[in-house]
Each structure stands twice: as structure tokens, then as C-alpha cells.
Simulated scan of single mutants.
Amino acid sequence: MSDKITMVLADDEQLFRQGMRAILTREEDFEILFDAADGKDLMTQLKAAKTLPQIIITDLKMPELDGVEVTKLIHKKYPECKVIALTSYFSKPFVINMISIGAVAYLAKNSSPKLMVKTIKEVAKNGFYYDEQVLQFIKDGVHNTKVGIKSRFDKNNLSTREREVLELICEQLTTNEIADKLYISPRTVEGHRNNLLLKTEAKNIAGLVVYAIENGIVDLSPNY
């Protein structure tokens, strides 16, 4: 079984898509399963795929079916696939909206290849990746925009251990790293994480981070 990070790319600009593919295929631990010319093409190929990718990198502005609608469909039909939003418009409204519908990372089209590779690896390892600017957007939007985490539970409903696990998730530690730090088993960490998802009604790990910021459970700082 391959340990490579599998992914697909969707962008209607062929030159950009092929350039991105050329960059990513240089990485030994990356595998591009296929690429798509637009959202409709992406959904068609996903439906026919024998193996689903771990990560889907999709442009937001595409004909037929744009990246926003695609992200909603993927989250509903293929929740195990992690979506990285790609766009020329790196603005607060775009970022907040994509997070609210389930995107786990956000990349500007003028990002460096190094940042793109880092983002993919962080998402594969931790389930999400928000850089300092995206976290700042989330913080700014807490009082002005609901980013999709509508919990019926008070933050005090979380146990001490659940809060500890949540804080370490926000530090972007892996399940095994959290287990080592708290002297518990990885399976126990997964149990706490599942409880956190249920209690907060978050859609994914990225949603837990948003919940923690919104509720003051973690302090937003350059360390995160």
C-alpha cells in the first residue's frame, strides 16, 4: 500500500493547472490521481474513480460548477476528502465563506510552490492548515460573521480532557503526538475528538479550530 498523499486538481485555466501539476509531481510523496477542467468535470471523475483522493485542490472561480458549490457537494458526498480552496481573491469574505462550508485550507494563486507543498502536507497530517493570516480573518469574523459552528452546547460542557485535546488540535499536533503528550492512547484521542465533533456540531477538524477561537478556548497568537 502506497504511503503517498493522493490528490486531484481542479482549475479551468489549463496552463495554471498543468503548471501546478508539474510542481507537485516533483514531490516524491505526492501522487496526482487526475485533474479536472471545471467543477462538473471534477464531480464526474470523482464519481467514476476507483480510489478517492485524500486531498482535492479546487479553484473557486470555474465555469459549469464553481469551487464553492463543488466544496459543498464534496463535503456532502465525499466527507473523507479534504478540500483546499484555491483562488486569486484572498479576501476575508471568501476565506470565511469557504471555511463555513468545509474547506480545510486556503491558498492564494500567487502563493509560492513551497507554501503550496507545506499546506498539502499539513492538511494530510492534521486534517487542516490555517496560516496566521487566515486565523486572523477567523478572529476578525467571530463578532461579525457566523462561520458555521452553531453549537447547542456551552463551552463549559466540554470536559477538562476534551479541552486539552482541543487545544492540542489547534496547535496542529497529530493524533499520536497528542497521545504522547497527554499519556493516553491514540484511540482515546480519537474518542475525545469524535466527542468534540458531536458536542460542537463542527463539520470537521478545521471546524473545531474555528469553534475554539470563537469561544476563547485558545488564544490566537503567531504560535498557532
Rank of each mutant, 00 (worst) to 15 (best):
E177L: 02
A103V: 02
A179T: 10
P79G: 07
T87Q: 03
S185W: 13
D38Y: 06
L73T: 04
T175M: 04
A105G: 00
M62W: 14
T58W: 13
V95K: 02
L107D: 03
S185A: 03
A108V: 01
G141C: 09
Y78N: 12
T175H: 06
A10Y: 11
E164D: 14
A10I: 02
K203A: 07
I101N: 13
E162W: 12
E28H: 09
P93G: 07
I74H: 12
G102C: 08
D219K: 02
L158R: 07
L182Y: 07
Y78S: 03
N176H: 04
L9I: 11
M7Q: 04
A48Q: 08
F137G: 02
K199L: 14
H75W: 12
R17Y: 11
V165F: 11
V189A: 12
H192S: 05
M7E: 12
I149M: 10
I149E: 15
D38G: 01
S151L: 02
I178V: 04
L198P: 00
V70C: 14
E171K: 06
S91C: 08
G102P: 03
Q45M: 08
K76T: 08
Y211C: 11
L182V: 01
V165A: 10
E122Q: 15
D140M: 06
L182H: 08
V218H: 14
E190T: 05
H75P: 01
P93A: 12
K4P: 03
P222K: 13
G19F: 00
Y89I: 00
M43A: 02
E13A: 04
A10L: 06
D41P: 02
P63A: 13
I57Q: 02
R17G: 04
D41G: 00
S88R: 11
F30N: 10
Q18K: 11
N144E: 14
E69S: 01
S88L: 10
A105L: 00
L173A: 12
I149G: 13
L197V: 06
L135I: 06
N97E: 15
K203C: 11
V165Y: 15
E13G: 03
K77A: 07
T119D: 03
I84S: 12
I55R: 05
